[in-house]
Design a protein around this nucleic acid. Structure first.
Lengths: 209, 209
DNA sequence: ACGCGACTTGGGCGATCGCCTAAACCGAGT
DNA sequence: ACTCGGTTTAGGCGATCGCCCAAGTCGCGT
């Protein structure tokens, strides 16, 4: 078998196992068995187990960044652009649910935070420049961070807590219809935010109520 | 030393270690060392490592539920009650940041989901009955779940992604001032939601835009 | 004083961990 | 035909894992 094919098989197995069990609960032997590859090959191709996670995360963030940056800038108004990016984000998470689990766990453990910050940085900076240009003095940097955190949380929590939501509602949250409904909900919330921002800009004053 | 004191020391060390490293990355020897207790005592008092996590989670959810249910019902209007509950939730997470990390990891791994669902159930049911009484036909069950997920996500994400936010903004998100600012932001978002709900009820029709 | 049950202790069992070594394999270049 | 570098293999090293055992200690009722 050509080495590229081997590396791909190892990475695929790693993704599946890290996603469902987590880094610490997965042994290199598990990965070898799942990918149908000798266990020494993992260390030959990826040096250490830790590096496997690094390569995996870097790949995810590169694909995610490309997808979000291209989703941005397709439609005229800012609201529509934001909606497109959030839709693309939701689609990405739906198609890469292991990514969501892995990041959540690593952030909780404070590991690979640098890599995760670096991965989110391009989109984060794009978002901040949007608002800096569009709402020069209506939104402070602190407030913007809160808004981004909230929107991010709304999108991501739906996927991380998928199992919990399933049990609470009895409905599978990952069917196509359910995902579309979620995206619609997020769009509504974002519209509400924008309405508030615009009204604040027109009155040229801050703070709601 | 009296056994209750021993069990408390073990649980405290378990909480700290599970919180910062996670269940799988923590050994019973780590717990014994941190709590200054013989390693066999852990299995004597708590049977298995897995049970430690169970006891820990049950304790957290009991305290959380009591806190949220008492926070509810102190002020006249529904908006204020919701704000109080969310403030109490944020305070609880701020004072028990390990809880947040632990739950996030376990949910990501699909472990202890039953226990977590059971723990959130009282508050979840209270929230659903609120809206069922107050907005009988303005909000569907599906839509309510989306709203609760979003609000939950807004609150929790701030704490789980504390380290990331710190690096992105350069500001410690866990100072008293920062936490108050976060609570204020969540309150604003909830107010926006309520304004939308009320307008929908007055027009007696659904769907924004 | 003494026995009994609860608690604590050091030591170690078998299993599994990440990683490494030495040898075999294999296709391309000469 | 034969080297040679890249790839794959079986096997095992030392460390660590969860958990258990037999003995020891302690306080308390009698």
């Amino acid at each position: 078998m050509q080495p590229d094919r081997t590396k791909a098989r190892i990475l695929a197995a790693t993704d599946a196992l890290f996603g469902e069990r987590g880094f610490d609960a997965t042994s290199t032997r598990d990965i070898a068995e799942r990918s149908g590859v000798n266990k020494a090959l993992i260390h030959y191709h990826f040096h250490a187990k830790e590096d496997l996670l690094g390569v995996l995360l870097d790949g995810y963030y590169e694909r995610l960044t490309v997808k979000l940056l291209t989703a941005f800038g397709q439609r005229p108004t800012l609201v529509e652009q934001v909606e497109d990016v959030l839709d693309a984000y939701a689609d990405f998470l739906a198609q890469n649910r292991t990514f969501c689990s892995i990041v959540q766990r690593e952030v909780a453990s404070g590991r690979h935070v640098d890599r995760i910050v670096q991965g989110t940085l391009p989109v984060f900076q794009l978002a901040t420049t949007w608002f800096a240009e569009l709402t020069p003095n209506a939104v402070t940097a602190q407030e913007l961070l809160h808004v981004l955190t909230s929107v991010y949380g709304m999108v991501v929590t739906y996927f991380t807590y998928g199992r919990v939501l399933h049990q609470l509602s009895g409905v599978d949250p990952f069917t196509d219809e359910a995902l579309e409904a979620r995206k619609l909900h997020v769009r509504r919330m974002v519209r509400l935010l924008f309405v508030e921002l615009e009204s604040r800009m027109s009155t040229d004053a801050g703070a709601l109520s």
